[in-house]
Design a protein around this nucleic acid. Structure first.
Lengths: 343, 343
DNA sequence: GCCTCCGATGTTTACGTCAACATTTCTGAC
DNA sequence: GTCAGAAATGTTGACGTAAACATCGGAGGC
């Protein structure tokens, strides 16, 4: 975290003054051309544009931001970039933001400690951003002393709605329900659940909805198995499941753990879906090619990302807060890993 | 791409002047405190710090950047964020940059067209970055009219070295060689190859090295199958391979395609590794839990990311160019998907 | 022909920070 | 007690841009 303040300074590029001199106009006229104002004579505009090209003029973002008080830039706070959903969402966020003329500032949170979180928020104040999207799925988030500059627009994705901030989220409950119902409808007496880590809001919601669905249908609620999203943890849980002859159907909280589960089942000679049906969550690209291909709940990350940016930008530009949480539906993709229980 | 210039302006935060007034000192003293200079009286410093806290002062990044001519920020140009390797590398880049006190500006290239690329580079000039890391694995990159501001430090990752820029790359050739040799050493007469898209530099290198390894060993070089990195394309190629009784070993250019290949082989009742051995590339987390677990070449993305940032920052601070390409070795991870050919 | 009005262009200034230089205060040696 | 020198603090100005206001010239109405 030590910052080396080297004396070497970057060569500054040409400024408006340089262009103005070359084109024989005032700096203000250059500014007008650069900003596409229409009250500039066509001939003058051409002359200025030519001059810009000649000296290789680029507007200076810092000066612009200083002058305007706006940065045309949004910050995205992420924890574990490499986690699947985050990546997809970030991709969508970056794309949507770019399309709207906003730059994206990445602010990784290195670990889940309070200190790291606070640090990220602190840095935010110094960074040049007009708003922030928080992409951290942890419960602990709301305990953090979130010290955001007053009035800085924020949108929270896939996390708790206990904030005073707008929330955009995949409808986890709906997804978990259709997954569970799918298995029940196939004739299974009940459905087991391999859940995500307790720290994850999404995981808790999926779990709660799975439980409620079973209760609504009057099915017994088996004990919950817990993983940490990783394939490895799915494999570990899978070994327990494989050894348990009662299990005929499992709803797994993400595709990665489902893959680990399948691995364990194969190793123990349990057939899928013959002995045990498996349904995942996410529909990552590979799910269609698991063995057997995985029935799973598709999330529309790009939609979530797009909507987050929309919500944030409307806040930035109009100061509006939509405290209505935005919810994006999921869709069940049925493949070979789920079927009726063996008679 | 249209930018809505809303009239609503963000409320500006407190500035040094506000702090100075409250603390009864000059702005310069506040600046000194903010920058941790030691030539400030302890009592004064405390007073200033208290004032800062009271008004909620945050240094204004734009003003700082304008004054210093440096932004403490690097740009990362990415194409297809969602692609596996990019994500891992980006994660490492972001982490390393943050640790060095640099912010990360994401600049997604929406499609692979010339226009989009040029657009991304154009935006760069306006954005507030001290340097750029290019994370695009396409050949076409070097054809692009890369109009970077003169003297802007650049590091290219996983791409062609035909630039005049420093390059950091995984040693693709070494990886492909050890994969191929592993299969030959197991007793296979030759090794087939399912390659990545022709547009990818990494894919070409892996292919060339596979071919060279076969030639060096005096093995016949079978025709090349081409995928596009996707699981789906691996599946398609897999159906061809499954139908071809000559194939006993395949080196696949990434793990995702290998998964698709395994899927096709299962469908056709070909056993792995009994009938056909498969080796992948990447060692993504899931590979250990494919069925069967995948022998693959592990890439050290975090190392690549870290080194890229190091190279970039040293350029930024010292103007040094290490035109020596940095090469990161890979490691073969042997699992169940590879074995000796059936007698 | 004179006057008004509008569009094109120029001038001034402030945005927040910090380097460079100027000034003040304090320390200690003689 | 005086003075040099160092340490603390203040003042000025510039970074590049764009809003606000000023100016200038020409078109059109009477």
């Amino acid at each position: 975290m030590t910052v080396d303040d080297s004396p070497v300074r970057r060569r500054r590029g040409p400024s408006m003054a340089d262009v103005a001199r070359l084109a024989g106009v005032s700096g203000q006229t250059v500014s007008r051309v650069a900003n596409g104002r229409h009250n500039v004579d066509a001939a003058t505009r051409d002359r200025v544009l030519a001059a810009m090209r000649e000296v290789g003029y680029r507007p200076n973002g810092a000066a612009r931001a200083l002058r305007n008080g706006r940065f045309r830039s949004i910050g995205v706070i992420v924890f574990e970039l490499s986690s699947f959903g985050n990546t997809r969402t970030l991709d969508a966020v970056a794309t949507a933001a770019t399309a709207s003329g906003y730059a994206v500032h990445l602010m990784p949170v290195l670990d889940a400690t309070q200190a790291a979180l606070t640090g990220a928020f602190d840095r935010l104040g110094e960074q040049a951003v007009d708003g922030v999207i928080i992409l951290i799925e942890a419960h602990q988030l709301d305990e953090a002393e979130v010290m955001l500059p007053d009035g800085l627009p924020v949108v929270v994705v896939d996390s708790d709605a206990e904030f005073d901030y707008p929330v955009v989220d995949t409808d986890q409950a709906q997804g978990a329900r259709i997954a569970t119902e799918h298995l029940l409808d196939l004739g299974h007496k009940t459905v087991w659940h391999l859940g995500g880590p307790a720290t994850s809001v999404a995981a808790s919601r999926r779990l709660a909805s799975w439980r409620k669905t079973l209760q609504d249908r009057g099915c017994p609620v088996p004990p919950v198995l817990m993983g940490d999203w990783s394939t490895e943890s799915g494999y570990d849980a899978g070994r327990e499941i494989a050894a348990n002859p009662d299990v005929t159907a499992v709803f797994v909280a993400n595709d990665q753990m489902a893959l680990g589960l399948l691995h364990a089942l194969h190793e123990h000679g349990r057939e899928v879906p013959g002995d045990i049906s498996v349904v995942g969550f996410d529909d990552k690209e590979e799910a269609a090619h698991f063995w057997p291909p995985l029935t799973t709940v598709r999330q529309f990350f790009s939609e979530v990302g797009r909507r987050s940016v929309d919500a944030l930008i409307s806040q930035i530009q109009a100061g509006e807060h939509h405290h209505q949480p935005v919810s994006v539906d999921t869709k069940l993709i049925v493949r070979a890993s789920s079927g009726p229980p063996r008679k």
